[in-house]
Amino acid sequence: MEEIFDPVCIDKEAIDSMDVVYDKTPLLTDAPMHYCPGCGHGIAHKMLMEVIAEMGIQEQTIGVAPVGCSVFAYHYMDVDMQEAAHGRACAVATGIKRVRPDKFVFTYQGDGDLAAIGTAETIHAVNRGENILVLFINNAIYGMTGGQMAPTSLQNQVTSTSPYGRDTKFTGAPLKMTELVAHLPGAYYVTRQAVNNVNSVRRLKKAIRTALEYQKDNNGTCFIEVISNCPSGYRMTPLQSMRWIEENMFSVFPLGDIKVPGKGGAVS
């Protein structure tokens, strides 16, 4: 045990002479988050809400949260939201955007939701170039239901439904939805970001800002994959889980822009 060092006592006057340089965004509610300690969802929620706050578009934003750990997102995101059936967020968002074309619409989906049961809805929404932001949180596992294998689970990754390690010959390889949708002409801006450290989180925020700015121009779907962690599902500590995604996921799911308007990208 390191020797007990009493914490720096708060010196009231010192604080008065300081500015607040970072604080919780008002667009996150006071509801304590149910996410496990160190889960990337909280970070992704925060970046999204910070951007919506900075763009001043709270009054024009409608979000869609599907089934998964983030099913309760509407307890935390202070914008009008709809909860979609598992896999159907992109269809629900299509319905919203088509009748409210002047609003900013986003979906916030996990890998099971977007890359398994919702594959068709995702691909067709992007293929139609629905003018929405798809925020795709990929932690290669089904968190909410207790750590089962996902379509993006890695070769030999141990999960509660691949207890001997995922055998990709038997269950398929990690599904690269982002590269898949990047090929669709309807995809306007496609990038893969992460929440493994502060630099990645800053880049994620920039990508979300870019995507929501693009949404004003009505040029097609903006698709942001966020490589995230799942401490409970991986049976690891939060820090170990962040190292795990760096050492294992990034090689399979390389970070960076995949399709940027004007710069071509995966396919011109």
């Binding site: 159907r88 269809a91 629900v92 299509t94 319905g95 088509r98 009748v99």
Partner: peptide
């Protein structure tokens, strides 16, 4: 709008109805 399946169609209905 012609959807990609009836599953998608009914969920588009959900979204649009939910948006009033």
């Amino acid at each position: 709008l012609q959807a990609e399946s009836e599953v998608a169609a009914i969920n588009m209905i959900y979204g649009a109805a939910g948006a009033g």
